[in-house]
Design a protein around this nucleic acid. Structure first.
Length: 555
RNA sequence: AGUGCGAUGGUGUAACGGUAGCAUCACAGACUCUGACUCUGUUUGUCUAGGUUCGAAUCCUAGUCGCACUACCA
């Protein structure tokens, strides 16, 4: 196998480990989401990494829900997460939950108490915070720190048995209140929460902290390479400490830098705010950077995977240009989406020399990028809708579209020559008039003419209508979290522009939710999940690159 | 301030002591029945200062800058 592409730092580590025979050459990863929100594009990186590494090295990848906090976690999120992973194209080897290990974790805690390495503390949350010390000053020992093992055992059992109220007691590891790593200053292992858990119900009223569950969960599953984001780097020595004191399987953690995207926010807290405060319609609003939002918008799983692969993985801070994601989306859709014609901002085009009442049907190619894409029937008649922007009464030199005296090709039909236009009393153009050249018929062109421009059109008589939602970036600044004030102040007021009645080809009436098409010269669009036969709704996935838009802005 | 991590074109990522490459973006041109796609070309980069070496993005030293960590969240 030739390595034309260089390895990322995780692949290098894994290949070194395999070569050294570590873990008998076994590779086992895991994707460990907390079910307290929907997955976003940042998670996609982690998913592609963990599942991708397992596949590449003939290993396994578990899906494990880190569900140690019953107050924020819900089954709805579990289902959405599983759905998104499957849609992205990955299959987990085992579906597991940290809550599966609550009994084992309890026993682990007892083991540490017996070793004199954990104690029950009566301190309040405020007292614990106050005695924590600071980055430069050591903390202060809790008065409960030197309770006897017997007393700790008894108190911990009483905690489990519901003898205490929330917050009344905690179980803490007995490490070092002066440790430079703040996480070692007697970290909390268990807290009391009289809460119903989405899986264990009311069995427990004490729940392990993430730090006392995550590392051991990896260990229990014999995960060989525990991949996580950079902010957990300080936790690694603590996980290793627990693993060592417990004498259990030594999973190794490796950290990478989370991916940030321009013109959006990624933290679950902020996304939840957007949802709760109705700035968007929900977690799957097409403007959201969630997997479900992007799916609804029309992004493909292939494009997302390609994007994750393209941006790679490293340990440095980053903010990826969203244009790169859009490129990956266009690249895939260009190959796969059928072309159709839709007129978003219509003006009537009258073909003066084409008989009224006559209809001619053209077979037009569905996708020039796909030789097996087939054709579709498109009716042509005396009156057509075209884009208002495709006609100019007074046009600049480089305008290749309709202007008096200019010729253009009507896509898949005839070349027409513009004769002028009609206006209403206010000077608004109401009709554009053209004559068609019968000998220029598409596929049978004997006119010998070549024209610079080709425009799209829809026959007035047979046009159908659809609602089209034109989406743009959710924020108007590159890094909303890094601006002064609230990030919501930077929401783009034009992030969604609804066109209630766009003219579309009759062929499109059969489009089903999830179908993706290219509206020729306008962009890629996806049939929305709310769409129905009575009311078709399209979401704009992404625009096409538009060289004319740039050109026309020049002087 | 303590600890840890990091610094390569506008953005993302390679180069593991030996020609700073790839993708995107931008720009120019070719092609085009989508001003799309495709193709060709061009501009732009090793945080700073020393040192080691025939040779340094890479190794060493010092500094600068950025990020993370002081939740009974994960």
């Amino acid at each position: 196998m030739s390595e034309e592409r260089s390895l990322n730092f995780l692949e290098e580590i894994i290949e070194t480990d395999i070569a050294a025979g570590k873990n008998d050459g076994r590779v086992h990863t895991r994707f460990p989401p907390e079910p307290n929100g929907y997955l976003h594009i940042g998670h996609a990186t982690s998913i592609c990494l963990n599942f991708g590494l397992a596949t590449k090295y003939n290993g396994k990848c578990n899906l494990r829900f880190d569900d140690t906090n019953p107050v924020t976690e819900e089954t709805e999120y579990v289902e959405s997460i599983k759905n998104d992973i499957k849609w992205l194209g990955f299959t987990w080897d085992n579906e597991l939950y940290a809550s599966d290990y609550f009994d084992t974790l309890y026993d682990f805690a007892v083991t540490l108490i017996k070793k004199g390495l954990a104690y029950v503390d009566d301190s309040t949350a405020e007292e614990i915070a106050a005695t924590k010390g600071s980055l430069t000053t050591p903390g202060i020992d809790s008065p409960c720190r030197n309770r006897s093992i017997e007393e700790n055992l008894q108190l911990f059992a009483a905690m489990r048995d519901g003898k205490y109220k929330d917050g009344e007691k905690t179980l803490r590891a007995k490490i070092d209140m002066a440790h430079p790593n703040l996480l070692f200053r007697d970290p909390l292992m268990y807290r009391i929460k009289h809460e119903h858990h989405h899986r264990t119900g009311d069995k427990w009223c004490i729940y392990p902290m993430y730090d006392f569950a995550h590392g051991q969960s990896d260990s229990i599953e014999e995960i060989t390479h525990s991949i996580c984001t950079l902010e957990f780097i300080h936790h690694r020595p603590l996980y290793n400490w627990f693993i060592e004191q417990l004498g259990i399987f030594p999973s190794q953690q490796y950290e990478f830098a989370r991916r940030n995207l321009t013109y959006t926010v990624m933290s679950k807290r902020k996304l939840l705010q957007l949802v709760n405060e109705k700035h968007v319609s929900g977690w799957d609003d097409p403007r959201m950077p969630t997997i479900s939002g992007m799916r609804r918008r029309g992004y493909t799983a292939e494009a997302l995977r390609q994007f994750c692969d393209t941006i790679g993985i490293a340990k440095r801070e980053n903010i990826v240009d969203i244009g790169l994601l859009e490129f990956c989306v266009r690249e895939h859709l260009n190959k796969t989406a059928n072309r159709v014609m839709a007129v978003l901002d219509p003006v009537k085009l009258v073909i003066t020399n084409f008989p009224e009442g006559k209809e001619e049907i053209f077979d037009i190619e569905n996708n020039p990028e796909d030789p097996n894409g087939g054709t579709r029937k498109v009716p042509f008649s005396h009156e057509l809708w075209i884009e208002r922007e495709d006609f100019m009464e007074v046009a600049p030199k480089k305008f290749f579209r309709l202007a008096p005296g200019n010729m253009v090709r009507l896509k898949g039909a005839f070349i027409v020559k513009c004769e002028g236009c009609k206006k209403d009393d206010n000077g608004n153009i109401t009709e554009v008039h053209c004559a068609y050249l019968p000998e220029s018929k598409s596929g049978h062109d004997t006119s010998g003419l070549t024209v610079k421009g080709t425009i799209h059109w829809v026959s007035v008589a047979s046009a159908r209508t659809a609602e089209v939602r034109m989406y743009d970036r959710l924020f108007r600044v590159e890094d909303p979290s890094n601006e002064d004030g609230d990030f919501k102040d930077y929401i783009n007021p034009d992030s969604m522009n609804v066109l209630p009645a766009v003219y579309i080809e009759p062929e499109l009436v059969n489009a089903k939710p999830g179908d993706r098409v290219q509206f020729m010269r306008k962009g890629y669009f996806c049939v929305d999940t709310e769409s129905s036969a009575d009311k078709l709704i399209f979401n704009r996935t992404v625009t096409l690159k538009d060289a004319w838009a740039k050109e026309s802005k020049k002087v």
